[in-house]
Computed example of a mutant assay.
Amino acid sequence: MGTWYHVKWSDEGLDADTEEVSSGILSKLQEVDLLMSTYKPESELSRFNQSEPDVWFALSKPTTEVFDIAHEVSQKSGGAFDVTVGKLVNMWGFGPQYKPTQVPSDQDIAKALSEVGFDVLELDTASQKIRKNTPVYVDLSAVAKGYAVDRVALYLESLGIKGYMVEVGGEVRTKGVKPDGSKWRIAVESPVVGERRVQDVLELEDMGMATSGDYRNFYEEGGIRYSHTIDPRTGRPIKHSLASVTVLDPSVGYADAWATAMMVLGEEQGFEVAVKQNMAVLFLVKDGSGFKELATPGFKKLTGMPKE
Score class of each variant (00 low, 15 high):
T3Y: 04
W4N: 14
Y5L: 09
Y5R: 03
V7R: 00
S10Q: 04
D11G: 04
E12Y: 10
L14M: 10
D15T: 15
E19N: 10
E19I: 12
S22D: 15
S22C: 13
L29M: 13
Q30L: 13
E31C: 05
V32T: 06
L34Y: 15
K40T: 11
F48S: 08
E52K: 13
E52S: 13
V55N: 14
W56M: 03
F57L: 11
A58S: 15
P62F: 08
D68R: 14
D68L: 11
G79S: 10
F81Y: 10
F81N: 04
D82W: 05
V83P: 12
V83C: 13
V85W: 01
L88T: 09
M91D: 09
G93Y: 08
F94V: 11
F94A: 09
K99W: 00
P100N: 07
T101Y: 09
Q102W: 01
P104L: 08
P104A: 07
P104V: 01
D106V: 11
I109Q: 01
L113M: 10
L113F: 00
L113P: 01
S114G: 04
G117C: 03
D119T: 14
D119M: 06
L121P: 03
T125A: 11
T125N: 02
Q128Y: 02
K129Y: 07
K129G: 08
K132T: 08
T134H: 08
P135A: 13
V138K: 06
L140V: 06
S141F: 06
A144I: 03
A144S: 13
V149R: 04
V149G: 04
S158K: 07
L159Y: 09
L159A: 05
I161A: 03
I161T: 05
E167I: 01
V168N: 04
V168S: 03
K175Y: 01
D180T: 10
D180E: 13
D180I: 12
S182E: 11
S182V: 02
S182R: 12
A187F: 02
V188H: 10
P191H: 04
P191E: 09
V193C: 09
V193L: 15
Q199M: 14
D200C: 02
L202I: 10
L204I: 04
L204H: 07
M209W: 05
M209E: 07
A210Q: 12
A210V: 07
S212E: 10
R216D: 11
N217M: 09
I224N: 12
R225C: 02
S227A: 15
T229Q: 09
P232L: 10
K239M: 14
A243V: 04
V245G: 02
T246F: 03
T246H: 04
V247I: 06
L248G: 08
D249P: 03
S251H: 11
Y254R: 11
A255W: 05
A255R: 05
W258P: 09
T260P: 02
T260R: 08
A261S: 12
M263A: 05
L265R: 06
Q269P: 00
E272S: 15
E272Q: 15
A274H: 05
Q277I: 00
N278R: 12
N278C: 04
L284C: 12
K286T: 06
D287G: 03
G288F: 06
S289W: 05
F291E: 13
K292E: 11
A295P: 00
T296M: 12
K301N: 09
T303V: 03
M305L: 13
K307W: 11
E308W: 12
